[in-house]
């Protein structure tokens, strides 16, 4: 395999004196689909934010596309859908098209207007996420699942190489969730997109992703989806009961 597009080595992070990430190392190969699972508060979103450069790394290294995160400038190579993406102001006067186009703002740079080809690209990704019918609808008047697809489209419009999805299917019904995973799988398989997806859907995740990472402060597993599925029970009980075990140890 070639050099990974993302390499996290020995990463530590604390909020104040609360340790959130403890010696986390993982990597993502070109074209890989990685699922990240772990209980609430296990540091998944924090890890994503550090990879995106939203939080300064305190200890450890993050390399993106072969360069250290401190020197990484090609922001538009990464598309991101945040866990809080659909907690925007619902009354915001903007159509799906306008919101999706805003994903190009940074890539185009200052003093450049959207050109015809940019709008064509916008319509193309809107079609990809099957929202063409709603393109000129107000974003606040879409259902939660539709909004989520609009945010995926915004993340995709700049043709990123890496897509980072933080719990993209929260509050989305089972059918839409499946559709959503199919869409991500399609993008991954047909466009060679590398994907990191944080999710609580442990049951279905391993049938979509290539590899799984199981996180709770530290990494409890990082390997092939098949192996994760095989050892699921053992891994999860270790990761999800981590704190409980610690408490028990104190009693001894």
């Amino acid at each position: 395999m070639s050099t990974p597009i993302l390499k996290v080595s020995h990463l530590h992070f604390s909020y104040g004196n609360q340790k959130v990430l403890d010696d986390v190392s993982l990597s993502l190969e070109q074209g890989e689909f990685l699922g990240i699972v772990g209980p609430n508060g296990s540091g998944k979103s924090t890890l994503m934010k550090m990879i995106l450069g939203l939080m300064p790394s305190q200890h450890g290294e993050i390399d993106l596309f072969g360069s250290s995160i401190a020197h990484f400038k090609e922001r538009s190579r990464i598309g991101y859908v945040s866990q809080k993406a659909n907690s925007f102001n619902l009354g915001f006067p903007a159509t799906v098209r306008e919101v999706v186009a805003s994903g190009l703002a940074g890539k185009l740079g200052l003093f450049r207007r959207y050109k015809k080809s940019d709008w064509q690209r916008v319509d193309e990704v809107i079609e990809q996420v099957e929202l063409s019918h709603f393109a000129n609808r107000n974003i606040g008047k879409l259902s939660g699942g539709q909004q989520q697809r609009a945010f995926i489209a915004r993340a995709l419009v700049g043709s990123p190489d890496l897509l980072i999805l933080d719990e993209p299917t929260v509050g989305v019904d089972a059918k839409s969730t499946t559709q959503f995973y199919e869409l991500v799988r399609f993008l991954h398989q047909n466009q060679g997109l590398s994907v990191i997806m944080v999710t609580h859907d442990i049951g279905v995740i391993s049938s979509y992703v290539d590899r799984v990472a199981c996180l709770n402060k530290r990494l409890f597993f990082h390997g092939e989806a098949a192996e994760f599925q095989r050892r699921q029970k053992e891994i999860l009980s270790a990761a999800y009961d981590y704190d409980i075990q610690l408490v028990e140890h104190h009693h001894h």
Binding site: I78, A85, S102, L110
Partner: peptide, 26 residues
């Protein structure tokens, strides 16, 4: 007019705008 697309992106979702490379401070 010059900052139209940046102003929209920042108003709608500041975090995402900054992440995709919009220069918030300017």
């Amino acid at each position: 007019i010059l900052f139209r697309k940046e102003l929209f992106a920042l108003s709608f979702d500041e975090e995402n705008a900054v992440l995709t490379g919009v220069n918030r401070s300017i």
